[in-house]
Design a protein around this nucleic acid. Structure first.
Lengths: 192, 192
DNA sequence: CGTCACATTGATGCCTCTCAAAGCTTGTGG
DNA sequence: CCACAAGCTTTGAGAGGCATCAATGTGACG
């Protein structure tokens, strides 16, 4: 079931009855658990293709707010339907579990990344994770978004990129960033 | 199947044939993906009771190193066995998926936490997440470990606690930390 | 051609990390 | 029972780096 939300609109709010899980098709969604002391702690954003609010299948209510940052399009899988489907169809269930396991890894990886304090180091590591086998990567979206994803201000990102370029560790072409020899020793390719 | 590992011993290494998933019973395990440029980026640690290496069920090989930081005891669920069990038993499968969904939330929460730069704020937020309904929390393990879990040096943690105490937001008793009125407005209790 | 958002670089300040040192707690052995 | 060792706890001083504020350049789109 396709549903669209305008920028600023809420898909659901904390405490709402959990009516289904979502897959983001296009746009940007921010999952923003309400903090006890009022301040908003945003960040974990859903990106296109990702499943989110999976926990709602196992819970009666949502545990955080989901806000559309831009006009967005999502697939809504009604809870009752999904549950029935999954419980009946072992194949589907397996796929679903596999997806969650995959996301778990992704989040762990992100967590590691945040542990790197140095902006250039963090950027470099991010690039390693995103570059293809040839050591190249074309950012999807703006660099500003990229900065946000890896938890840096955009200024810090630009400076880090400049530093890395000056050190000869990366090259920047039109709409593309490449790892240079020093850091690109045929990244191991045995993901998940 | 219970297995024990001494401090410093590796449960498995990146690239090893995936032979099963684990649940930590006691001790501390560090999951440490090898970074391309040699530096170690540790952090995502398994804590007692947690399942880890779930992704190995959906993959032929492990994707990171697992190192015992202290003498540890784990439950090893052989892959073939688990897979068969899960695929046959819908009930078990559902429990397994629920556990992963739960872990997903936990990791997202941690990720939000790391986004808070200010040490006092991060500590406060961590306390909110850990305190019981009465606003109290007894740290399991040392404060040093707590500091590591929330991504601060222990010095920063001690200073943050001192600051919060001075501001009258927390109270520290023997082996217990309490949130004070200002920040403790009956934390919403509708966890999953 | 004007507007708007991204991209880039500069200057400043705060805050956490780091290195250091001292007090405290716990356990061990004589 | 005491003395010593080891690790946690706590506070101090200094430095580096990222966030913040600010300004300019650049590209896309109407």
């Amino acid at each position: 079931m396709v549903r669209r939300f305008a920028a600023g609109e809420a898909l659901f709010r904390k405490g709402d009855h959990a009516f289904g899980i979502f897959r983001l098709v296009a746009g940007r969604i921010r999952l923003a658990p309400v903090t006890p002391d009022g301040a908003e702690v945003p960040v974990p954003m859903a990106r296109p293709g990702e499943l989110f609010a999976e926990a709602s299948l196992f819970s009666a209510r949502y545990h955080c707010d989901a806000l559309a940052l831009t006009d967005s399009e999502v697939l809504l899988y009604p809870k009752a339907e999904v549950v029935q489907q999954l419980k009946k169809n072992e194949e589907e269930m397996w796929k679903f579990a596999g997806e969650m396991a995959h996301r778990l890894q992704g989040l762990r990886t992100q967590l590691e990344l945040r542990q790197i304090r140095s902006a250039p180091q963090r950027v470099l590591q991010s690039l390693h994770l995103r570059c293809d086998a040839t050591g190249r990567w074309a950012p999807e979206g703006t660099l500003k978004q990229f900065a946000e994803e890896i938890g840096l201000t955009h200024e810090a990102l630009y400076r880090a990129l400049a530093t890395l370029k000056k050190e000869g560790r990366i090259r920047r072409d039109k709409d593309q960033i490449s790892l240079l020899a020093k850091d690109f020793k045929a990244l191991d390719k045995d993901e998940k």
